Amino acid sequence: MPDYSREKAHGGRVAGVDEVGRGPLAGPVVAAAVMFLRGVPDDLAGRLDDSKKLRPALRERAFADLHASPSILIGVAAASVAEIERHNILRAAHLAMQRAVARLSRRPELVLVDGNAAPDFGCPAQCVVGGDSRCLSIAAASIVAKVIRDRLMTRLSLRWPGYGWERNAGYGTPAHRAALRAGGITPHHRAAFGTVRQLVLSTSPLSPENAEQPSC
């Protein structure tokens, strides 16, 4: 389980940052930054973990409790499919992280980042590999980002039914791949991803020119 040792060791304002959505074939990448101004409430600490390890109902409950506390600051941001196409998925994820930190109402003195690379936040940053399982602030950020992105993909699925985004969140499940082969690309698919190109260009009635257009 994650703990608060790195945040305590610093002694100042520490924000945990994580992103969700590097791997999907569709949708934006979403990042969240979470900063506990007075430590982690005892009733919440035991329920924070890597969002991928939590059942949806537990994620939703933790998400609501994080937002309910006035001593917990949260910033959320995204990088669009067009930005993923324009740059690359790593750079787009870093853009989302920078924007999330910038949306915190107070500037952190240290940013803890899940992974082995961090963008420039305008303050010191520390990379923590597997941070969403090791640091409570990063775990909280992973939950916020996951819930926000899943909700977004569910809304998009209402406009673009058939791809199962309400279930797969845009990841390349067999059902999603089959829908791409049958229905072609949408404005929310990452056309620059090799998997998308291979699935669509070989079977879709859309022309390669249309399939390569970046989405917004």
Rank of each mutant, 00 (worst) to 15 (best):
G131C: 05
R107S: 05
M35A: 06
A26S: 11
R155K: 01
D150W: 08
A45N: 01
D114A: 03
P41Y: 01
L73H: 03
S207C: 02
E209L: 12
V129G: 06
A169M: 10
H94L: 08
E212F: 10
R181E: 13
A32G: 06
G21I: 05
A31P: 00
F121Y: 06
Y171D: 09
S71G: 14
R134D: 00
F36H: 03
A178N: 06
G46A: 07
A100T: 07
N116Y: 10
G11S: 06
A118Q: 13
A145P: 01
Y4A: 14
S69T: 02
R47L: 04
F63P: 04
D132K: 00
N116F: 05
V20F: 11
A96Q: 02
L90Q: 08
E7H: 08
Q198A: 09
A191D: 05
V144M: 09
L158C: 09
K53R: 15
R103V: 05
P70F: 02
G27E: 01
K146M: 01
A141R: 04
R99N: 10
W165R: 01
P70K: 00
H188E: 09
S5A: 11
L66N: 07
V111I: 02
A77E: 10
R6C: 13
S204V: 08
S71F: 09
A68W: 00
V129C: 09
W165Q: 06
A100R: 04
A32F: 01
F121C: 07
D42K: 12
M1C: 08
D49F: 08
G183K: 14
G122L: 11
N210H: 15
V40S: 05
F63C: 12
D65N: 03
R99P: 12
L152A: 10
P174C: 07
L156S: 09
P187K: 01
D18E: 14
A77I: 02
V14M: 12
A139Y: 13
R177L: 00
G115Q: 10
L90V: 14
A139N: 06
A64P: 02
G122M: 09
D65V: 01
A179S: 14
L104E: 01
Q198T: 12
Y171P: 11
A140Q: 07
R99A: 12
C216H: 10
S133W: 08
E109P: 06
L180Y: 00
R38Q: 10
P208V: 13
V144Q: 07
V147D: 01
A15L: 08
A79P: 10
V81Q: 02
P205D: 13
R151F: 07
T154P: 04
A192V: 06
A179R: 11
L25F: 10
A57G: 13
